[in-house]
């Protein structure tokens, strides 16, 4: 990274286009470090990683869906359902923590299943199907919470609370969860037969079908997995805040999509990939963290992160087009 910073002055307009995304990363990194030197401190780098946990978890599911040639606008809803189901069974039914985890994941999978039925059975395009789920799922949360008030539960079982705050050998459990999912998704998408089939469907679903792949079943599995994965993000969020906040998940939707596309544009063939998504998520987390440390007004921060997002996407796509 330092070598890159040293070469910054020589980066002209041409350089910006050629190194596109990396240039934005470098400019942001230097800018944040200058604005607040504590940005580059070890403690803050852990903060950046921690901040990346939920976006990464959601982004992994999104990577799978985009690799299928589809999109899932309802991952935020699946995250909310994960968090809601877990908190409700803990609070109202006194369920054991592991049961709550399982039921939370099932809640997210339920959203994925709804999408799968709409897309595979009713043949609605993934965009419109998940948009429908997005609205219905949001509406259901409002109905259930009588208008959108959070459901808080202060007396969480310690094991559940540890999902967000616990440590093993000094490593935060939430980071371990994210790392485990990262490895699992890497193996699944980049190394397994399932992943090969997923990519074939995403690239040319007609041809995959003619080859005899069970396209409908694989698409359904993809959406259910994406929903279940997003729900894990919901578990982390609910454990962290010790409450279920309705509609909180939608905040992660845009970041997840952006991370996947930034990652895809860094890939040689321009396809969604797990390591690219990781890079995209880390970048977005770095930007959020850096803007926080600059002590900016909350609204200004929102606007700036939106603009940086657009710029990063645009440059990474220009960069991909230059290369091919």
């Amino acid at each position: 990274m330092s070598a890159f910073i040293a070469s910054l002055p020589t980066l002209g307009r041409q350089g910006l286009a050629r190194h596109g995304f990396l240039a934005v990363v470098a400019v942001c990194f230097v800018g944040f470090a200058v604005a607040n030197p504590s940005f580059v401190g070890g403690a803050n780098l852990v903060n950046i990683l921690s901040g990346a946990v939920i976006p990464l978890i959601v982004g992994l599911g999104m990577t799978l869906v985009v690799a299928l040639g589809a999109i899932d606008l309802s991952v935020g809803i699946a995250l909310d359902f994960g968090s809601a189901f877990a908190i409700v069974v803990l609070k109202d039914y006194g369920a054991a923590w592991y049961l709550a985890v399982l039921i939370g994941i099932a809640g997210g999978a339920l959203i994925g299943l709804a999408n799968a039925v709409l897309i595979v059975r009713l043949r609605i395009s993934p965009f419109l199907a998940t948009l429908g789920t997005f609205f219905i799922g949001g509406s259901l949360q409002r109905i259930f919470t009588h208008g959108g008030g959070p459901i808080s539960y202060r007396r969480l079982p310690p094991e559940y609370y540890d999902i967000a705050v616990g440590e093993v050998f000094g490593i935060p459990i939430r980071i371990l969860i994210a790392a485990t999912l990262l490895i699992a998704y890497f193996l699944l998408l980049e190394r397994s037969t399932f992943g090969k089939k997923i990519h074939a469907i995403g690239l040319q679903s007609r041809a995959a079908r003619v080859a005899g792949l069970p396209v409908g079943r694989l698409v359904a599995i993809g959406f259910v997995l994406a929903g279940a994965t997003a729900a894990v993000g919901g578990l982390v969020a609910s454990a962290n805040l010790r409450m279920f906040t309705p509609l909180a998940g939608n905040a992660y939707l845009m970041d997840a999509i952006a991370a996947v596309f930034i990652g895809a544009s860094m890939h040689r063939d321009g396809r969604p990939n797990v390591l690219g998504t990781l890079t995209g998520v880390l970048f977005l987390s770095m930007v959020a963290n850096g803007l926080n440390l600059m002590g900016l007004d909350f609204n200004l921060k929102d606007a700036l992160s939106g603009l940086i997002l657009v710029a990063a996407l645009a440059l990474s796509i220009i960069q991909h087009r230059r290369r091919t």
Binding site: L118, I124, L128, L131, F135, I136, S139, L140, R142, I143
Partner: peptide, 17 residues
Amino acid sequence: VFWTGCIKGGLILIVVA
């Protein structure tokens, strides 16, 4: 009023399906 989002979302789905 909370139900209207649900109903409209359902309508999108029925109509586009």
